[in-house]
Write a protein that binds this DNA or RNA. Structure first.
Length: 562
RNA sequence: GCCUCCAUAGUUAAAUGGAUAUAACUGCGGACUUCUAAGCCGUUAUUCUAGGUUCGAUUCCUGGUGGAGGCACCA
């Protein structure tokens, strides 16, 4: 609809002699202004040398001579806005469309036929997966799903740092704590081992040398005892991560490890000595020549750094997943500056890969006490946190007399609460971790959206039992506010991807749910004697589908009973 | 010192250069013999600062202040 209006306006603007001005058709801030508003007359004012309101009147006349299908009224308002309201029938049609589209409602084909690889989460085995990873996972997952809703064929990828100094820290700690490949240890013990190794490394020079030596053995795999301990730790860690991925609703298509990207990265560095010259025993990329800064790709011990590995990773993704059209790497914005250098270097080696690689930096989660650090053990483990929120959710469910006060539903509520607080604002911004907020299930929150969805489901069951079935045939004279909101959903999905802004979906769903709840409290839906009951039911169903699809994009489960 | 990002009610946020800056939380008040009260209705309060561009600036530009990240062998 938006596009139709844009085209019509462009045409009439051209008739007036202002073909080139760029204007927008958007949802007005205030719904009483209409369904769409255009600033065409305001922006054309200068080009035409006429007052905006005057131009708007001319446009209105022209639009009335050749009406846009589906448009009921065109009015001029304020400083020269053109406000457009749609015909009653358009809203009924939207309800029918939603009913037939089902899970496809909101989708578009702007990325159809395109293959997109999205890399995110990227935890380090042997270290704790903490709430920061939960944040990056929520962002990456929603970006992946937004691409899917926009028609792309998406592959999810997780890149895990299974080698590197942090692993040597953990292994050293494991040895000190007497952990063996066969001893029964879990992720918690690994986290403790890492913290011990990391602090020792900083405080004790002799131990530090031993840890560096350990690091080399991890890379070259020449010591069978170390290999066994390493393999056991890696296995425990990866299994632990997998239980968390399942909880938050992520399924990766492919896993990449630094242990495999490392050697490949080194090859690249060595085969391009002109791009990575030697300096102080290391191999570097001189970013200054390109307005950036210098980064080390191979350190003086001959080991590849993150940069070299990431370089190889770009190619490895194509080898394993096939040629892709676009690659998104979502990480915290600490990496942003490095990535510019990396991408610049990639441009010399794999220009075609560099051109389609996008780094999406997002804010970091910090604690009230400051930055989280797994080195000092100052982190909130993801699993503990999810469980804690789930506990609180269960208590809440019992307190409010929920229909389904079970552990499984409580976990789904917890996931919703957590994802909502991480995605409800711009992903660029850092967020201070606010436990109280995540534990609050009232007001704008994930559970609020879930509750609204479940409530609709319940009402629909009652209506069906009363013999009412949804129909859009007999519509009330004026569309309800919630009904008018429904039609914007596809535009929100398109815009949220374009701006890489999942929060637009959150904002929209929250408004939709609020509007529905107002409708719900003022109108009875499942009333046999109401001639509009079938229509209201169709409307409720459409809201349910929209909430469900929107929640899906956010990676939030939508239980039918809660 | 240099580079990047950020700054909106008491708090967390929203607002492709547009109309009276929008919600939620908190506080206070209210409705209901009714489909899930995790709900609904009412009420107070906001664009860091100084300039500039513009018919119009929370949005763009410049300076300042404050915060985060980065500036060669961690990721």
């Amino acid at each position: 609809m938006k596009v139709t209006i844009e085209q019509a306006l462009r045409k009439v603007l051209a008739d007036l002699g202002a073909a080139d001005v760029t204007f927008v058709v958007e949802r007005p801030g205030d719904m009483s202004h209409g369904d769409y508003a255009a600033n065409a007359a305001l922006v054309a004012s200068k080009a035409l040398g006429r007052p905006p309101r005057d131009i708007a009147e001319s446009l209105k006349v022209k639009l009335e001579e050749a009406p846009i299908p589906g448009v009921a009224t065109v009015t001029v308002a304020g400083p020269g806005f053109i406000n457009i309201t749609l015909e009653r029938e358009r809203f009924s049609d939207t309800l029918s469309l939603i009913a037939s589209a089902g899970p496809e409602w909101g989708a578009n084909d702007s990325w159809a036929g395109k293959r997109v690889v999205v890399e995110y989460t990227d935890p380090n085995p042997f270290k704790e997966l903490h709430i920061g990873h939960l944040f990056t996972n929520a962002v990456g997952e929603s970006i992946a799903r937004l691409f899917m809703m926009n028609g792309a064929n998406v592959k999810r990828v997780n890149y895990q740092g299974d080698v590197g100094l942090h692993v040597a820290h953990a292994l050293y700690g494991m040895q000190q704590l007497g952990m063996t490949p066969t001893s029964n240890f879990g992720a918690r013990e690994l986290g403790r081992a890492y913290a011990l190794g990391a602090t020792t490394y900083k405080q004790d020079e002799v131990a530090a040398a031993a840890i560096r030596e350990l690091n080399k053995r991890i890379y070259d795999r020449t010591d069978a005892t170390i290999n066994d301990l390493y393999d056991a730790g890696r296995r425990v860690s990866l299994t632990y991560f997998e239980t968390i991925y399942t909880m938050v609703g992520t399924r990766f298509d492919e896993y990449f490890y630094e242990s495999e990207a490392g050697p490949r990265g080194l090859e690249l560095v060595h085969s391009h000595p002109d791009i990575f010259p030697e300096s102080n025993g290391a191999r570097i990329f001189k970013g200054e020549e390109h307005g950036l800064h210098t980064r080390v790709f191979q350190n003086h011990e001959g080991l590849p750094t993150y940069e070299a590995k990431e370089l190889a990773l770009a190619k490895m993704k194509e080898e394993r997943l096939g040629i892709y059209d676009h690659s998104v790497i979502s990480t915290s914005n600490e990496i942003t500056e490095y990535f510019k250098v990396l991408k610049c270097a990639m441009g010399f080696i794999y220009p075609e890969l560099a051109a389609k690689t996008e780094h999406l930096g997002h804010g970091t989660v910090r604690l009230a006490t400051g930055k989280m650090s797994s080195r000092t053990g100052d982190v909130i483990p993801a699993l503990d946190f999810i469980n804690e929120v789930a506990e609180a959710a269960l208590e809440k469910m019992i307190a409010v007399g929920a229909i389904n006060p079970d552990r499984d539903t409580a976990t789904q509520v917890a996931i919703a609460a957590i994802k909502f607080v991480t995605l409800h604002g711009s992903i660029l911004q850092d967020s201070v971790f606010d436990k109280e907020r995540a534990l609050s299930f009232e007001g704008d929150s994930g559970p609020y959206l879930q509750y609204t969805h479940a409530r609709i489901h319940s009402v629909m069951e009652k209506a069906t039992a009363a013999g009412i079935s949804p129909s859009t045939r007999n519509a009330p004279e004026a569309p309800y506010e919630v009904e008018r909101l429904l039609g914007y959903f596809p535009e929100v999905i398109a815009s949220a991807l374009k701006d890489r802004a999942p929060h637009q979906v959150v904002t929209y769903l929250t408004e939709l749910a609020g509007s529905f709840n107002s409708f719900y409290s003022s109108e009875r839906i499942a009333d046999k004697d109401d001639e509009y009951a079938p229509y209201k039911l169709a409307l409720a169903d459409a809201v349910r589908t929209t909430l469900k699809n929107g929640l899906w994009v956010l990676g939030i489960p939508a239980p039918e009973k809660m």
